[in-house]
């Protein structure tokens, strides 16, 4: 135990013994695991509500799937390189990626500041982003368990066609968490606008509209006009939806798979850098105004 215990480096106040602490790296792993366990416990409290929420969420991709399958059939069996079976695969994998992409939104930020929850988090010796990343990561394990029967029913109904490579499957599982991180960081950047205005919802709605079009959520990106695909290449959205989906559906070459992971790493780096600077300015603003 002594190998993983350190002391604070500062003498204790008079009359109080200094207290040993768990080592920094081990404590961070411990924090994430504990947060994830907490999230799982909380989500299982609401398992029925969660299930209905997920079933409701399935409506969106099923509509896209039915529409695009019909278009494909009317155009001789494929559109933009996607057959009805590949559309089925795309939108069934979509349901998992969408659930993995659910993170703490700017609505939550408004609530967090108005209710004083952020003040409570600021009193703790750890950056609040770790709570969100750990907590929502834990939720995903519950989501996965609930998603499996839904995926099975959709597969029976729509007969998906997947041709993933071994590398594609591996990249998919990494890319899922890459997508989760990118979207978490993006939402944090948006949420931090709450430090300057308490009505960030309008900006959030604009983000959602852009994401719908340029991420592959509404439609696979290859079906968009060339100019729109060009715009999408300069935005982070496709790395949170289209890329992980296509990795598993089998639409990407080895080069594209590895480049995709690189792009995810780039956007994670950009998001983390923005958060680093905006957080410092935001927290200074928050500490000046108070709540």
């Amino acid at each position: 135990m002594s190998a993983v215990v350190e002391r604070s480096g500062r003498p204790a106040a008079p009359g109080l013994p200094d207290r040993p602490r768990v080592g920094r790296v081990r404590s961070m792993v411990d924090l994430y695991l504990t947060e994830m366990r907490t999230a799982i416990a909380v989500q299982f409290q609401y398992r029925v509500a969660n299930y209905f929420y997920m079933i409701g969420m399935v409506a969106e991709p099923v509509i896209y799937l039915v529409v695009w399958s019909s278009v494909a059939r009317s155009q001789g069996g494929a559109v933009g390189g996607y057959t009805p079976g590949e559309f089925a695969a795309y939108y069934i994998v979509w349901t998992l990626v969408r659930n993995i992409n659910i993170v703490f939104t700017p609505y939550g930020w408004e609530w967090r500041i108005q209710k004083g929850q952020l003040s409570g988090q600021l009193l703790r010796p750890i950056h609040p982003i770790h709570y969100d990343l750990g907590y929502f990561a834990g939720m995903k394990f519950v989501v996965l368990v609930l998603w499996l029967p839904i995926a099975a029913i959709l597969s029976l109904a729509f007969h998906p066609t997947l041709q993933p490579s071994g590398l594609g499957i591996g990249v998919f599982f990494v890319a899922l968490w890459g997508a989760y991180l990118i979207r978490s960081l993006n939402m944090w950047v948006l949420g931090m606008i709450t430090f300057w205005t308490t009505r960030v919802s309008a900006i959030f709605e604009l983000y959602m509209a852009l994401e719908l079009i340029f991420s592959g959520r509404l439609v696979p990106l290859t079906l968009l006009p060339g100019w729109a695909q060009g715009v999408a290449n300069f935005l982070p959205f496709q790395w949170t939806f289209g890329f992980p989906i296509n990795a598993l559906v089998g639409k990407l070459s080895t080069t594209q798979l590895l480049e995709g992971l690189g792009m995810q790493a780039l956007w994670i780096g950009i998001g983390a850098t923005i958060i680093h600077f905006v957080w410092r300015a935001g927290i200074r603003r928050f500490s000046s105004v108070g709540n």
Binding site: P20, L31, T34, T38, A41, V42
Partner: peptide, 20 residues
């Protein structure tokens, strides 16, 4: 945490404050 026993939240504080 509102939805879980306080004992579970205490565990979270243990991790946050790096208490052995």
């Amino acid at each position: 945490e509102w939805d879980i026993p306080a004992a579970d939240s205490f565990e979270l504080n243990r991790a946050i404050y790096r208490i052995p």
